[in-house]
Design a protein around this nucleic acid. Sequence first.
DNA 1: CGCCAGGCCGTGT
DNA 2: ACACGGCATGGC
Length: 226
Amino acid sequence: MHDSLLRAYGPQRWWPARTPFEVILGAYLTQNTAWKAVERSLANLRDAGALTIDGLRRVPLPKLRRLIQPSGFYMRKAPALKAFVAMLDREFDGSLDNLAAVPSPALRRRLLDLPGVGPETADAILLYALGHPVPVADEYLRRIAARHRLLDPAPGRAKISYNELTALTLRAFARDPGQDHARLYNEFHALTVAVGKAHCGTAPRCRNCPLAADLNHCPGSPLSVI
DNA sequence: CGCCAGGCCGTGT
DNA sequence: ACACGGCATGGC
């Protein structure tokens, strides 16, 4: 899948951000939110000087809510962002480098303890902001895996779980020993989003190809051969 | 105008 | 451990 998608779409150069801290803000803001809307919030934050650790530390909560309003869920996301900086100050001397120095499993648990951080946000921060070689799964990969029967839901379950998706990704890339797995996971997740946006996405039905709600039959999809 | 977006959380089973 | 509804906005 990685190689087919890379041929089709080329390197994605994720994450679309200038600094690791900006990656983290984007990871929070894009939760169940179109990236287009996130860009507007990030632009607001930049104009307000709140796109840095110190800037976000200083901006009052009510103003932060207003700045990120375009990307929705601001009553949850604004306090969550404040909580991240508070954690960084309290436990890591306000340094992302100190945070990144924590071993992946412990760091992942620490991130999951934060409000507004679930498995995908934690892994996206680990990989794209802190450089840890962990796979990232999302609703796109879940749809692709389900539609292509790469994996079935566990018996009695309706959906493939997040952990099952990352485990599948780990197994697949374990066949490439000696490779830079951080780079591979980076590219692979970006590519799944690219194909998801181009074909059907996470929607129950595909708007791009009315005759098929399935990527298997989505005309022109690089995944049509899988 | 209705559907949906690079999830997460609290509550009920 | 799930399943489910709420969270909010704006693009298409």
